[in-house]
């Protein structure tokens, strides 16, 4: 195992995070604050409880995942896309690193960054709502699982992308809409049919509900199914990345 190699990539990627630490941290703090002002205070005051949870607290897991999804994808995709863009990819490809070691370095760094941001959002949320976490260990595990899964997804997107525009396409046009429609701010049980059934085809519903279960012990779908869907997505991302390294697709000629 090339531990020095993994650590070098990890440190390099974290150094970029450190260079932009204030922007990286202030953006989620401000965004979360705005969500709480709009949804928690303005709209939330008109809504008492959702699934037995005060509305302000109910939206916290969804808010966290909204940022975790986008930050994981953005950091991991940018991490591997930048060497392609600047031409320094030659060094990664010619280094004595296995695909697993390369992925550990990039995805580990991207997941670490989004975990930090997720926890900063959680800390910000405590300023606005009375919140207690029912299953804290499961919450951290789930947060890590989602961060790693979406970082893997971002890593694959970074290899797929041929330009900066393509880096943005999937997070902005697919992931964010699916998150908003996936019950980040509402319970899917309040939707009328057929939308309620249609919503169940959105995989993000399962991710958000699984994460929400770790907070409140309640969920629109069974926690086991949520975990299964997340694990399935993780495996799909791993399979995609495995195929990329096996074939060299968009990585090397």
């Amino acid at each position: 195992m090339n531990l020095h190699g993994i650590w070098s990539i990890y440190r390099f990627e974290m150094a970029r995070f450190r260079r932009t630490v204030w922007t990286s941290l202030m953006v989620p703090v401000i965004t979360t604050t705005l969500y709480f002002v709009v949804f928690g205070t303005a709209i939330g005051s008109a809504m008492n409880q959702v699934s037995g949870v005060p509305y302000g607290a109910f939206i916290v897991p969804g808010l966290m995942l909204l940022s975790i999804f986008s930050e994981s994808i953005l950091n991991a995709s940018l991490g591997i896309y930048m060497p392609k863009f600047t031409g320094t990819m030659y060094e990664i490809l010619s280094a004595p690193l296995s695909p697993i070691e390369t992925v550990l370095g990039y995805v580990g760094a991207a997941a670490s960054k989004s975990m930090v941001i997720g926890l900063v959002i959680l800390a910000t949320a405590y300023l606005f709502v009375d919140l207690s976490i029912l299953h804290p260990v499961a919450m951290v595990f789930y947060l890590l699982l989602v961060a790693v899964t979406f970082s893997l997804f971002g890593f694959a997107i970074g290899i797929w992308a041929r330009g900066f525009e393509q880096l943005q396409v999937i997070p902005l046009l697919i992931v964010t809409p699916l998150t908003f429609l996936g019950g980040a701010f509402y319970s899917v049980t309040i939707l009328p049919e057929p939308w309620r059934t249609v919503t169940l085809f959105n995989p993000v519903v399962y991710l958000i509900n699984g994460f929400r279960w770790t907070f409140f012990g309640t969920s629109d779908v069974t926690p086991g199914v949520s975990l299964g869907v997340t694990a399935l997505f993780l495996l799909a991302c791993l399979a995609w990345i495995g195929w990329i390294f096996r074939t060299g697709w968009r990585l090397k000629n």
């Binding site: 020095h4 070098s8 440190r11 004595p96």
Partner: peptide, 10 residues
């Protein structure tokens, strides 16, 4: 230093 680490050197 990054390059050195990448190639597995302490």
């Amino acid at each position: 230093n990054f390059s050195r680490g990448l190639f597995g050197r302490a």
